[in-house]
Design a protein around this nucleic acid. Structure first.
Lengths: 158, 158
DNA sequence: GCATTATAGTTGTATGTGCAAGCAACATAT
DNA sequence: ATATGTTGCTTGCACATACAACTATAATGC
């Protein structure tokens, strides 16, 4: 709550942070947070034409050349089909290449992909700085941890 | 961490809840949580052919007949264009109807829409119970509050 | 050794969401 | 009163993601 001067009617209570039935609902709040924070992420990573998930995937590939989609699926908490789509796009952009080996698929970074790494790291920094400032330095670490744990707990049960 | 018996090699440490560079990133974790919890939501609300956002929007309309898209946009933390799309679908399903009044649009529930309310409330309950059980009763309230505050903070700054 | 089942990936299709551009109604200024 | 801006909503397009169905390879049982 915040007091605001209104020139006609004097001091008014403005319900800035209004509590709704939704705010008490994690399903709602988690999605709201994800959308808000993704906006920042996409702004930063968008500078070189990637979404945050493409960037994260590329990081893993650079870090572990020859990684398989199934592993990426586990690490990134995304379904195999989504991984296929992400890799497809990175392949189009020549940041990654695929190699078939039996029923497996191995993913390697290209030189271009590796060269992008510093830019990604920087964007990551900047995104982090932005949302940390908005949310408040104190809360961030604990919040992140709790959010991640919750995500894991749900992932295992359902 | 969890110890697991492996018949060939004896006791092994299995890194079940592995910490990655991603788990420490709110951008990543928030999206992971949102996806996981939305899965539950869509399972429950899907019983009557709605996604959770359609259901929530319908709740607001039933509660405040004649509500305008702009208000819904604020309450639900969704862009106006998304509201249009959601309302379109609810209109197709005859759960809601639109009335133009000047440049405004007023949204009213139909009888069918109102009749769906109890089912929605029940689905809401069930979804809540499911994720509360998975995440742990103790954490839920605080987590939800923090998550919502963070979402708001980001919404205001960016 | 063949038949069955399991595993790894890909593709078709659908959905929720947002951005940018557009349009129509209203407000303001000169 | 006409011109200029502002507000409220909608539409075209794009994107990330998932599910279900499918293919191809590997593993297992008999």
């Amino acid at each position: 709550m915040k007091e605001v001067m209104d020139s006609n009617e004097g001091v008014q209570i403005v319900d800035e942070k209004k509590e709704t039935r939704f705010s008490a609902c994690l399903l709602f709040s988690a999605n709201a947070l994800a959308r808000a924070i993704t906006t920042i992420g996409d702004e930063e990573f968008g500078r070189f034409g990637l979404s945050y998930s493409h960037a994260y995937l590329l990081c893993e590939v650079v870090d572990q050349p020859g990684i398989m989609p199934s592993q990426l699926s586990q690490t990134l908490y995304l379904t195999p089909s989504t991984i296929t789509r992400l890799v497809e796009k990175l392949e189009q952009k020549q940041l990654v290449r695929r190699e078939s080996e039996g029923k497996k698929t191995l993913i390697f970074p290209t030189a271009q992909g590796e060269a992008l790494q510093p830019a990604i790291a920087e964007a990551w920094q900047r995104a982090g700085a932005r949302y940390t400032q908005a949310i408040g330095e104190d809360n961030i670490k604990g919040l992140t941890q709790h959010v991640f744990k919750a995500a894991q707990a749900l992932g295992e049960e359902c």
